[in-house]
Design a protein around this nucleic acid. Structure first.
Lengths: 174, 174
DNA sequence: CCCAAGGTTTGCGGATTCCGTAGCTCTTCT
DNA sequence: AGAAGAGCTACGGAATCCGCAAACCTTGGG
């Protein structure tokens, strides 16, 4: 592995101090924080000292930045698995079309524990929702009783998962 | 927080030794390993000793189990973010219909770096693929040039992401 | 120009955690 | 019964984590 600091690309030191907020309210991330995230995408348990060496920062500075990123909700460090491997036998992606306010419907779906992933989209669906369930009965209940009962939901189309082929979080390392 | 061991529900000690393989080749997970995963879904950096206290195992045993889960590919511990927050301006879910062998198409798509998530489904699409790109040009190229060029791809439909509303990995804690 | 204020980084020392390993137990196979 | 293998515990040394005070840098007045 290279010991060359990843962030050395950004010659301008002001990059490291830019904390402006972008239009959607999410904090602006400088090159160093991106490099830290990239390290943790490769291994969420990598020691702070090793990250510091890679990005050109002290151990304590990395620790404080990581803590802030977690506090701000920009990043989370978690274990991820294929739910099918871990006993959740039925999963589905559900496309939802909405009449009226899309965001309020999205909020309603987000509040359901079975909805792991909710995203607003452009196209023939207004929302895409990933559902994780115990079994067929559970999945049926969530889709037909709960989701379709939300005011504003016009229609849904379901895509039941057969097999997860790929799941990565490596986009930082391209 | 409770100090009561989570796994104490499973009274039968044989549960802890069951390492049979299920039909699809993925290892069987006992109640203790599930409890460990659940702990790491809450906080991927939680110390082994704390996990051990929660699941009723020694620190070393937890460490060995975690290492094995990682080696087997059952679980990965990583940082996750909303890519839109981190400079990837265009994402999309793409539904793909296939003629011929679906799995070989899935493998081809999985080999593309921009495809973060590939799943085989039942329904009007054979595959759902999540794409992460830098900008519109990049997204256009991936969908129209690369994905549609894969032998066996009959058609695609794209759903460009407007806003990520929810993203969790907490199904273990329901 | 100078200084105060706020935020970030660094450099510690102590507490905690990580890590390899040896020994024990239990199960399985011959 | 004995051997082999898997999993767990105990334990000590190395590495890491963590809180804190001092130093540093930038900004905005006065």
């Amino acid at each position: 592995m290279h010991s060359e600091p990843v962030a050395s690309r950004s010659a301008d030191p002001r990059d490291s101090r830019d904390t402006r907020e972008s239009r959607n309210g999410t904090p602006h991330l400088d090159a160093v924080s991106l490099a830290i995230i990239e390290q943790l995408q490769q291994d969420g348990r990598r020691p702070y000292a090793a990250i510091g060496k890679a990005v050109g920062l002290s151990e304590a500075a990395v620790r404080q930045r990581v803590q802030k990123l977690l506090d701000q909700g920009v990043m989370q460090i978690v274990a991820v698995t294929d739910p099918l491997t871990v006993g959740f036998r039925r999963q589905a992606m559900v496309g939802v079309t909405v009449e009226g306010d899309v965001e309020s419907v999205a909020d309603a779906l987000s509040s359901m524990g079975e909805c792991e992933y909710v995203v607003m989209t452009a196209g023939s669906f207004d929302l895409m929702v990933e559902i994780v369930c115990e079994d067929d009965d559970h999945l049926l209940e969530v889709i037909n009783k709960r989701i379709r009962a939300v005011p504003g939901v016009r229609s849904t189309e379901s895509f039941v998962y057969l097999k997860l082929k790929k799941q990565t979080y490596m986009w930082g390392t391209r």
